[in-house]
């Protein structure tokens, strides 16, 4: 993905078709978001009548954030705690595991076994695990606790973090760490002062991806939390009740919930692209 990569210029009919496809793709992504964004500024009645012209209002945001019946701020706080703590934990565990697997001479079956297991685990739908977790957490007293939810998010994010960090560590030439060992570092110091600082882009990429996953995660949170510990996605879903769907507030809450992800993606996009394409082009 170097800057020097040259693309073939499109001309004539190809150009029109190319741009056409691009517009369709952008509309598919931006369209629903734009619709939600518009809805968040409409009164409920304008949404239900399907009116195109409307007078924008902040009332939905005000109701979601400051309304007496709303505990959305508490939900945001829960999400922030769960996403932050699980991200930090998964980075610590995942980075150490990746470094150990990459650098130390483990028997082949250990490395293959571990990585194979993480890959299989990554492919299992989260819902498969929710049932057993629910029963286990009820027994242990972890149901309806942020700690329990954090643990599940660490588990879900660990495979991706290990794979991503291994890709970053494998980019560091072994001589640099050897130089550090000759220079006076113990293996732990070589990790701390040389390998880790060089893997910071990887930490950023893996951290952002883990944070966004945790922030958006719905099915586990829905089953393992109750009113006090509900996270943002669960709270958004609760705007749809049995007899009433609060479309406008739901839209406002949804828009608010995208803010952290948008900010993180904007700041860390280049690290993520690099992380996901590492090793693909030499």
């Amino acid at each position: 993905m170097s800057a020097g990569t040259s693309a073939l210029p499109l001309v004539g009919r190809d150009r029109i078709i190319g741009y056409g496809l691009m517009v369709v793709a952008v509309l598919c992504v931006v369209g629903p978001f734009a619709w939600i964004l518009m809805s968040s500024f409409k009164h409920q009645i304008a949404i239900l009548t399907g009116a195109w012209s409307f007078t924008p209002t902040w009332s939905n945001y005000a109701e979601v954030l400051f309304g007496r019946r709303s505990d959305f701020v508490g939900n945001v706080r829960n999400s922030a705690v769960v996403a932050s703590v699980s991200t930090v934990l998964v980075l610590v565990v995942g980075t150490l595991a990746a470094y150990s697997l990459h650098r130390f001479r483990w028997a082949r079956w250990v490395t293959t076994g571990f990585l194979g297991w993480t890959l299989i685990f990554h492919m299992i739908p989260a819902l498969t695990l929710v049932g057993p977790w629910y029963i286990a957490f009820r027994e242990l007293g972890w149901y309806d606790t942020l700690g329990g939810l954090i643990l599940t998010h660490v588990t879900m994010n660990l495979p991706m973090t290990v794979w991503l960090m291994m890709a970053f560590f494998s980019e560091i030439p072994p001589e640099i760490e050897e130089a550090a060992r000759v220079d006076g570092c113990s293996p732990l110091e070589a990790f701390r002062y040389v390998a880790l600082p060089l893997a910071v882009p990887g930490l950023i990429a893996a951290g952002i991806l883990a944070f966004i996953f945790s922030w958006n995660e719905f099915s586990i949170a829905l089953n393992l939390t109750a009113r006090d510990t509900a996270t943002v996605p669960v709270a958004i879903a609760r705007f749809a009740q049995q007899y009433e769907v609060q479309h406008s507030q739901m839209a406002a809450a949804a828009v608010i919930s995208t803010i952290p992800a948008l900010l993180l993606m904007a700041l860390g996009q280049r690290f993520i692209v690099r992380g996901l394409t590492l090793g693909s082009v030499k």
Partner: peptide
């Protein structure tokens, strides 16, 4: 002994400087 305890210094082919 570990490399660091051998009282040696090494210059590598790729220089192996710490990029950061």
């Amino acid at each position: 002994l570990e490399p660091r305890d051998r009282d040696i210094a090494m210059v590598f082919q790729s220089y192996a400087l710490y990029p950061h």
